[in-house]
Amino acid sequence: MRPKITWKVATSLDGRIGTSTGESQWITGPESRAQGHRLRAVHDAVLVGVETVLADDPRLNTRLPEGETGPDPLRVILDSRLRTPSFARLAKAGTLILTTKDPMQIGTAEVVRVAGDAQGRPTVEAVLETLSARGVKSLMIEGGGRVAASFITAGLVDAIEWFRAPILLGGDGRPGVAALALARLAHAPRYRRLAAEPMGDDLWERYEKVI
Rank of each mutant, 00 (worst) to 15 (best):
W162I: 10
Y191A: 07
P65V: 05
L82I: 09
Q119I: 12
T21F: 08
D56K: 13
V210F: 08
P71I: 01
R40I: 00
E110N: 10
H37F: 06
A126C: 12
S12H: 08
D202H: 12
S32T: 01
L139A: 02
A10I: 01
G107P: 11
K92G: 13
A91H: 02
L182G: 07
T21A: 14
A126Y: 06
D57A: 11
L13G: 07
E66I: 15
T69C: 09
R121V: 13
F151I: 12
G173N: 04
V48S: 01
P71F: 02
Y191W: 08
D44F: 04
T21E: 05
R134T: 03
T84Y: 08
R164Y: 08
L168P: 04
A41W: 00
R63C: 06
T69M: 10
S132E: 10
L185P: 15
D56N: 08
R16S: 03
G107D: 02
A159Y: 13
S138C: 11
L203Y: 06
G22V: 03
A45M: 05
G94K: 00
T100P: 07
L74P: 02
L128G: 07
A41C: 10
T99N: 05
W204L: 14
S12V: 10
G145D: 01
A10K: 03
L47Y: 01
I97F: 04
V48C: 09
F163Y: 15
P65T: 02
A149H: 05
G107M: 07
L131N: 01
V9K: 04
L139M: 09
V210I: 13
E197A: 14
R193N: 03
T52F: 03
V42Y: 04
S138I: 11
T95R: 01
P189V: 09
K137V: 10
S12T: 11
E66G: 14
L168Y: 12
R16V: 04
T69D: 05
A109H: 05
W26P: 15
T99C: 06
E142F: 06
P189R: 11
K8W: 01
P103C: 10
K4L: 13
A55P: 07
M1S: 13
E129L: 15
A34Q: 04
G145S: 07
P103Y: 05
L168Q: 08
A55Q: 11
T28V: 14
D202Q: 09
G36P: 02
E51P: 14
